[in-house]
Nucleic acid binder design. Structure first.
Length: 481
RNA sequence: GGGGCUAUCGUUCAGCGGCUAGGACGACGGGUUUUCAGCCCGUAGACCGGGGUUCGAUUCCCCGUAGCCCUACCA
């Protein structure tokens, strides 16, 4: 009869979500799903200055793409203002909070002085002991005010982090933070505890940058007479130089990875392994397997470094695991965008595209690469690889070789890999050149390139007409020198 | 300046008092093959430093160092 687990992802709409944001969402989602609980989405839009149009859409797009479905929400804090002011009033009434009328100038001066003197920073509690009369007078004058939490000046506040164990802070080192701003909006601290309580969140799973703020939250819960949820602070994700993830490490915006052609399965697997493990050496899992195994006690407590190469490896893995028709469905839009395939391809065009994709699948690491990998299957060859030209097409035997192969293939009634291979090898033998030479020369003739799928498979898929035309063209080119 | 979190191969995840310190990515070498890729096999590569505790520390404690986070009317 234990309360069902409820977690949430609570991003602020200040831009496109970061890799780290989504990883946090992922872990919160995994925890909820593992325990058959609920996962909610809450938009923390309490800072009107930093609001960025479109970020909520990007956040939802990222979650949906990864498969992080939410059971409730999205909730918007900006629509719940009365809840926060009520809580603030209650805290003032119970003596846990007070109004502060200090101007930003006074606060700046105070901070400068503290810095100059090397004394600990923090609000000097100037307004903490204002009498009721003074407060009334100031309110009457219309002076803007904020509500600050009245920190106990002694004692220790501690909590048990689900990942790090017991963490404690001395209250006297904590200052009277602002919980309600002068514009009537709450700060994160107030809003999040009011909402987490109201939404019956059982586990607050968030980034480790929140650890230092947690004693404030614990005290806020106590002030409200509420029990606080379990806190779990996830390790941060850093760049390869152990510095904050930034553009220099590649993309930091999550949606960029969608656009670059990563697969959600790969990203899902990669991200969960960044800070979590099943406790042994395995690291390739399906989403279902991860959901069934995931728990907070296996989350590491130290920073993880974002390794783009590993992500790429996971992506290649995911691509190779995809059933062909699914992979084709993912590649087709890229081919269409490149103009290699029409917007409304015929049945046979589609079938052709699919067999082409099948040949290149194992070389594919990123979806958009399919375009350059397969271009020659769809378009005529505009030029031959220059190294290949020098090495193979410049040989005097190339033209007769290509012509012979062409005629042999044309005579074929059974245009399949084994017969194609037999004919190419026979042609080589007839002219007394090595099979390797015949194969490389032919590859260059039909694809213009030096590397690619197996030659015979490639010829079969290209079809007799294209192949013959290309062999003849290459023979002419070779003859002309 | 103050406070907090963290510290195993280049990276990642294991190890939770006794191990030849393991797996993966990457690197390097080999095999398969017509090339590349893939696949298979192999090689190199790590316990931040100093004190304790203990018969015994990578593992527990303390100090130092380093990185990161907080120290906003931002989240």
């Amino acid at each position: 009869m234990n309360k069902s687990v409820r977690t949430r992802f609570a991003p602020s709409p200040t831009g496109s979500p970061h890799i780290g944001n989504i990883r946090t969402a992922l872990f919160a989602w995994l925890y909820a799903r593992h325990h058959n609980g609920q996962f909610l989405l809450r938009i923390e839009d309490t800072d009107r200055n930093r609001f960025v149009e479109g970020s909520v859409e990007q956040i939802m797009r990222a979650c949906q793409w990864l498969g992080l479905d939410w059971d409730e929400g999205p909730f918007y804090q900006s629509e719940r203002l009365p809840l926060y002011t009520q809580a603030a009033d209650q805290l003032i009434a119970s003596g846990h909070a007070y109004k502060c009328f200090c101007s930003s100038e006074r606060l700046d001066a105070m901070r400068q002085k503290q810095e100059a003197e090397g004394t600990p920073s923090g609000y000097d509690r100037h307004c903490r002991n204002l009498s009721a009369d003074e407060v009334a007078k100031l309110e009457e004058s219309g002076a803007p005010c904020v509500v600050r939490f009245a920190m106990p000046d002694e004692g220790v506040t501690s909590f048990t982090d689900a990942i790090r164990g017991e963490v404690s802070f001395e209250n006297r080192l904590l200052d009277d933070f602002v919980m309600l701003k002068s514009d009537g909006y709450p700060t994160y601290h107030l809003a999040s505890i009011v909402d987490d309580h109201d939404m019956e969140i059982t586990h607050v799973i968030r980034g480790e940058e929140w650890i230092s703020s947690t004693p404030r939250h614990v005290l806020l819960y106590e002030g409200m007479g509420w029990q606080h949820p379990v806190f779990a602070h996830l390790p941060i994700i850093l760049g390869s130089d152990r510095k904050k993830l930034s553009k220099r490490h590649g993309s930091v915006q999550f949606v960029d990875y969608i656009d670059q052609g990563y697969l959600p399965e790969a990203m899902f697997n990669f991200l969960t392994m960044l800070g979590w493990s099943p406790g042994d050496d395995r690291e390739e899992f399906s989403t279902e397997e991860i959901v069934s195994m995931f728990d907070l006690d296996k989350v590491t407590d130290h920073a993880a470094i974002f390794d783009g190469q590993k992500l790429l490896w996971y992506n290649g893995l995911a691509i190779r695991k995809k059933p062909l028709h699914e992979l084709a469905a993912l590649c087709v839009p890229h081919l269409q965008a490149a103009g290699l395939l029409s917007a409304e391809p015929s049945e046979s065009d589609l079938a052709y595209a699919q067999s082409v994709i099948a040949l290149e699948a194992e070389r594919l690491k990123l979806l958009p690469e399919i375009v350059e990998l397969t271009r020659f299957f769809f378009e005529e060859i505009s030029e031959y690889d220059s190294k290949g030209t020098k090495k193979w097409l410049s040989k005097p035997e190339s033209a007769p070789l290509l012509k012979l192969i062409s005629s042999k293939l044309q005579a074929l009634t059974d245009f399949t890999v084994p017969s194609i291979e037999a004919e190419v090898r026979a042609a080589a033998e007839e002219l007394g050149v090595g099979a390797g030479q015949a194969i490389h020369t032919t590859r260059l003739a039909v694809s213009g390139r030096l590397v690619g799928p197996g030659l015979f498979e490639m010829i079969e898929v290209l079809g007799i007409e294209r192949v013959v035309a290309r062999l003849e063209k290459a023979a002419e080119f070779a003859q002309a020198g």
